[in-house]
């Protein structure tokens, strides 16, 4: 991740201590939220495991020898959840899904691509969509399956697609 453009806050030691001053903390959390989302988008990750994240470079600046404590990580993640960018996978809050683009946006993007490829009225598997050769180079290539299904659901609601299941594998038909 050498090419990731870290914000200036990442090199600022107080960034790794949750600030008690409310105004300051607001700014700090804003910076954290955008950093986490940027980082996830950059590394194309959709989920985050809290225990793993503790030692990832996202929350641990080795050069500075500063790391965000577990409590602080939860503070940041909860802030993301409040903004609608995060959902916990379960109640234990051990891992979460990060949404740096809304499901509707994903759906739209996929639909536009399908239209451009004139694959209307054909059925394709979910695997094809995210891991097929055709979609290589597209932003949704390698998209998390849960996210993909949510995105296609939004299309389904607009009657632009239909999710189906055959022979144990899942597919989708676009209209």
């Amino acid at each position: 991740m050498a090419d990731f453009d870290w914000p200036w806050q990442y090199k600022f030691p107080p960034f790794f201590t949750i600030q008690p001053n409310i105004e300051t903390r607001k700014k700090q959390l804003e910076a954290w939220c955008s950093l986490v989302l940027e980082y996830q988008r950059h590394s194309k990750q959709y989920g985050l495991d809290v225990t793993e994240a503790q030692s990832s470079e996202l929350f641990y600046n080795k050069q500075l020898n500063r790391k965000l404590s577990l409590d602080a990580i939860y503070t940041v993640l909860e802030e993301l959840r409040k903004r609608g960018n995060l959902t916990w996978k379960d109640k234990t809050r051990k891992s979460c899904t990060l949404i740096w683009r809304t499901y509707a946006e994903w759906g739209k993007m996929i639909y536009n691509w399908v239209v451009a490829k004139s694959m209307m009225n054909t059925v394709c598997t979910l695997y094809e969509l995210t891991s097929g050769e055709d979609s290589e180079g597209q932003e949704f290539h390698g998209l998390d399956k849960d996210v993909l299904i949510q995105a296609l659901r939004t299309l389904e609601a607009e009657r632009k697609a239909e999710l189906m299941e055959f022979d144990g594998s899942e597919g989708v038909k676009f209209f």
Binding site: Q9, F12, P13, P14, F16, T17, Q19, N21, Q28, R66
Partner: peptide, 26 residues
Amino acid sequence: TEKMGGVCRDETVEGLNFFPNRFLTE
């Protein structure tokens, strides 16, 4: 000063360190 937003803190095992509040100025 921290309460008024003039500085911000950096809390580590070595102790409490205060920095200029770049969160608000930048």
